[in-house]
Nucleic acid binder design. Sequence first.
RNA 1: GCCGCCUUAGCUCAGUUGGUUAGAGCGCUGGUUUGUGGAACCAGAGGUCCUUGGUUCGAGACCAAGAGGCGGUACCA
Length: 494
Amino acid sequence: MAKKKNKPFRPKARRPRGFEDRSSDVLRAETRLIQAAFSVYDMHGFEPLQTPAFEFADALGKFLPDEDRPNTGVFALQDDDEQWMSLRYDLTAPLARFVAENYDALAKPYRRYQAGSVYRNEKPGPGRFREFTQCDADSVGAAGAAADAEMIMLAAEVMRAAGLKDGQYAIRVNNRKLLDGILESSGVPNTAEGAEQRLQILRAIDKLDRLGAAGVEALLGEGREDESGDYTEGAKLNAAGIKAVLGFTTASTDNRADTIRTLESLMGTSERGLAGVQELIEIDTILNAVGFGNERVSYDTSIVRGLGYYTGPVFEAELLTEIKDRKGRPVRIGSVGGGGRYDDLVSRFRGQTVPATGFSFGVSRFLTALERMDALDSSVKPPVVICAFDRSLMGEYFKLAGELHAEGIRAEVFVGSGNVTKQMKYADRRHAQVAVLMGSDEMDAGQVTLKDLYEGAKAAAAIESNEEWKSSRPAQETVARGQWVSAVKAMLAG
RNA sequence: GCCGCCUUAGCUCAGUUGGUUAGAGCGCUGGUUUGUGGAACCAGAGGUCCUUGGUUCGAGACCAAGAGGCGGUACCA
């Protein structure tokens, strides 16, 4: 074998798994989407907030690093005083900490919006990373259904702001209290003992569209073995309970008023269930008054949101393609965000219940969906490239760039090294439409030469010999310095 | 976590039953052409064949473990 030579150490250029570089197009699209959401939230009187990426581990809650699994779930490290700090895994837990810390100073309801990276230490999958951007709006300190209605309307407005037309999205609303009501009469108590079983039932319902009724039935009962031979423990509901749950999840229609009537009879005498229906009625009244029809917001009893911490209304924002299914309804692409009421998060800090409700979406997931729907307008024009023909005229080149900037045209001076050939190649690779050439000849004559690279490329197709290519100088014109900006504009427009 | 597939140049991939100096296309850099992006031609750079250990006279190839990637499933605050 070859002996080790004294090679200089070179680190391998690589990223930790699950962490992505995001560049140009993606970044622009993300920024635009976040700004669109922010402007909606801002318009409705929400305030921006930014919290740090690190929080004390105990402030974030349940996912503490322990000795068995020190590196799963959250990224955590010990500060120099040995306190555990964790990278935030969402924006809601830090909000709860912020509200608790500033409780007396905040006007309530406190409504804030925030976007930022969150971190999860787990195996990355398709479209799933260990660092990703979330965009949240939450309303803390308002118990009534009006606050939930507001979040639902905001979610719908964000869909519009993202460039979607009505009919291309739907906000689907459910209420945890309804399922609680159903389960009560099926012998699952609404207490701490029933919490684990309720969570299993929620997870099972969540898989309705993927596994179908039969798969969910198995998960609600004894359990289910999948194709790879992996066994998932079921929720162990009895036959009547399974029937009741499945009946409930399919009870809703596209019409809110109809669904409310159906649910009222389904809840029977369950106090909690009827309270849930009452909340949906209140929300419906507000939506109707503002003109949010069934097409934008519907009630859907199959929506669960996997999380255990929701306590009341829950909802998902779903994207729909233009393609219709057999019943003539737009096909679902899937959920791009969601939210709901969570009344117990701040109480961890203060001992008293603080009502809260919010909406959150994953920025890149939303973008991927928009891309699939061709609803993305990500066009940023490439810059005009000003060639540095003559180094002694550098100041003039920046002056030219400045004149374009003043007109809102993206432009840059070539600041690298190399002759004009290289500079033209650079302009080409930047996909620039216009290259600006000004050597001493033009300078002395008070002129600027402009070249339309797009037109030039078309002309090149017909040219065989290099001689001809060089001498013809296609799609280029020399104009007086006084008119050159409007000439550039004309070229970009043409 | 569990199951399956994969890993050779920047990219896409060849590489014979284990045999000397590991190749191609595209891309990249330079030149023909230092006042002009294409095309063409010429030249060049770029490789710990994922890692470690083993089998062998000899391993890119065979064996083992690990890492990384992809897909499915579970989980998802």
